Amino acid sequence: MRNAELAKLDGLIGEWKTTLSDAWFLEPPGTEVPAATTIERLGESFLVVRIEFGGGAHNSGMNLVIGRSDANDIYVALYEDERGVCRQYAMTFDGARWILNREDPDMYQRFIADVEKDRILGRWEASEDQGKTWRKDYDLTFERSRG
């Protein structure tokens, strides 16, 4: 039986042309890295987000598995990438705003995105002082290519 709360994320499902931009760590300033993102169901209770970055020295990828803790009435997301990084995020989604948040001993981090039918405008931010101040790591723009 399909998870009703996860069904609220159906608008994210599809294929997206993605661009990473305005990253403090990329040289020269203004560098944009193209990516392809696929968001699909995994069974009846999960979504999988796969982002494949391309372009010269910027070949990499990241994966996110989104599910629900029904007993706690919350979304949960697990993240991993080719560096061997594995992180857990609390997640909220109201149809227009998508937020991933983690408050771990090593760093606080969040993804904040405005969701439209065929476009998602998001940014990753980090805090090294337990959320007192935030710096933007980079912007992620998703344009629907199929879905």
Rank of each mutant, 00 (worst) to 15 (best):
K17I: 03
T19I: 15
T19F: 13
L20E: 00
L20D: 00
D22M: 08
D22S: 15
A23I: 10
A23E: 03
A23H: 12
F25V: 02
F25C: 01
F25G: 03
L26P: 02
P29A: 14
P29C: 04
P29W: 08
G30I: 06
E32M: 11
E32Y: 03
P34C: 10
A35K: 04
A35D: 09
T37G: 04
T38C: 11
T38Q: 11
I39T: 14
E40F: 10
E40W: 01
E40C: 03
R41M: 07
R41W: 10
L42K: 04
G43P: 05
E44M: 02
S45Q: 07
S45P: 01
F46D: 01
F46R: 07
F46S: 09
L47N: 03
V49N: 13
V49G: 01
R50A: 01
R50H: 04
I51A: 00
E52D: 12
F53S: 04
G54I: 04
G55F: 02
G56N: 15
G56V: 15
N59I: 12
N59T: 09
S60L: 06
G61C: 05
M62G: 01
N63M: 00
N63Q: 02
N63D: 01
N63T: 04
V65H: 00
I66P: 00
G67A: 00
S69C: 08
S69P: 01
S69I: 02
A71M: 05
A71C: 05
I74P: 00
I74G: 00
V76G: 00
A77D: 00
A77V: 15
L78A: 06
L78H: 11
Y79K: 03
D81A: 05
D81T: 05
E82H: 15
E82N: 10
E82D: 07
E82I: 06
G84T: 09
G84V: 08
V85F: 07
V85L: 15
C86G: 09
R87V: 09
R87S: 11
Q88R: 06
Y89E: 06
Y89V: 13
Y89I: 09
A90P: 00
M91T: 14
M91C: 14
M91Q: 13
M91S: 08
M91P: 00
M91L: 15
T92Q: 11
F93A: 10
F93P: 11
D94F: 05
G95K: 06
R97N: 14
R97Y: 02
R97I: 04
W98D: 04
W98G: 02
I99S: 06
L100T: 01
L100F: 08
E103H: 11
D104G: 02
D104A: 13
P105F: 02
D106I: 08
D106S: 13
M107H: 05
M107I: 13
M107D: 12
R110S: 12
F111P: 06
V115G: 12
E116L: 09
E116W: 05
K117D: 09
D118L: 10
D118P: 07
R119I: 05
R119P: 02
L121P: 05
G122F: 08
G122D: 07
R123G: 13
R123H: 08
W124Q: 09
E125S: 12
E125Y: 08
E125L: 13
A126Y: 07
S127Q: 14
E128G: 15
D129H: 07
Q130N: 04
Q130R: 14
K132Y: 03
R135M: 14
K136E: 09
